Amino acid sequence: MQNYLEFNFKINPPKPWSEILMAVLIEVGFDSFTEETDGILGYIQKDIFNEEDLKNLEIFHNEEINIEYSFSEMPNINWNEEWEKNFDPINIEDKVLIRAEFHESGDFEHEIIIQPKMSFGTGHHATTYLMIQQMLDMDLKNKKVLDMGCGTSVLAIFAKQNGAAETLAIDIDEWSVENSIENAARNEVELIIEQGTAENLGKENFDIILANINRNILISDIPTYVSVLNAGGKLLLSGLCFFDVDDILEVCTENNLTLEKKIQREEWVSLLLSK
Score class of each variant (00 low, 15 high):
5 L>T: 05
9 F>H: 01
10 K>V: 11
11 I>V: 08
13 P>E: 11
19 E>Q: 08
21 L>W: 01
24 V>D: 07
24 V>Y: 04
25 L>K: 02
28 V>Y: 07
39 G>T: 09
39 G>W: 04
40 I>V: 12
41 L>C: 15
41 L>N: 05
44 I>E: 02
50 N>V: 09
51 E>H: 03
53 D>R: 14
54 L>T: 15
57 L>G: 02
59 I>C: 15
61 H>T: 04
63 E>G: 09
68 E>R: 06
68 E>Q: 15
71 F>R: 13
76 N>F: 15
78 N>T: 04
78 N>Q: 09
80 N>C: 06
80 N>D: 13
82 E>S: 03
85 K>H: 09
86 N>H: 07
87 F>Q: 02
92 I>Y: 00
95 K>P: 12
96 V>D: 00
100 A>Q: 04
104 E>Q: 05
109 E>Q: 11
109 E>M: 03
114 I>C: 05
114 I>P: 02
115 Q>Y: 14
117 K>N: 08
123 G>T: 03
124 H>N: 11
125 H>I: 05
128 T>V: 10
129 Y>H: 12
129 Y>W: 06
130 L>P: 00
130 L>E: 01
131 M>I: 05
132 I>K: 00
134 Q>T: 03
135 M>T: 06
136 L>P: 14
139 D>R: 13
143 K>N: 13
146 L>H: 04
150 C>V: 07
154 V>I: 07
155 L>M: 09
161 Q>C: 10
165 A>T: 04
168 L>S: 13
170 I>V: 14
174 E>C: 10
177 V>F: 05
192 I>M: 13
193 I>Y: 00
197 T>N: 05
197 T>V: 15
198 A>Q: 09
199 E>G: 03
202 G>H: 06
204 E>P: 04
207 D>P: 01
207 D>W: 13
208 I>D: 01
209 I>P: 01
211 A>H: 02
212 N>D: 09
214 N>I: 12
217 I>G: 13
218 L>A: 10
219 I>P: 08
224 T>E: 06
225 Y>E: 09
228 V>C: 09
230 N>D: 05
232 G>A: 15
234 K>Q: 03
237 L>A: 08
239 G>S: 14
243 F>C: 10
251 V>C: 10
253 T>W: 05
254 E>W: 13
258 T>S: 11
262 K>L: 14
262 K>Q: 10
265 R>C: 08
265 R>S: 02
270 S>V: 00
272 L>M: 06
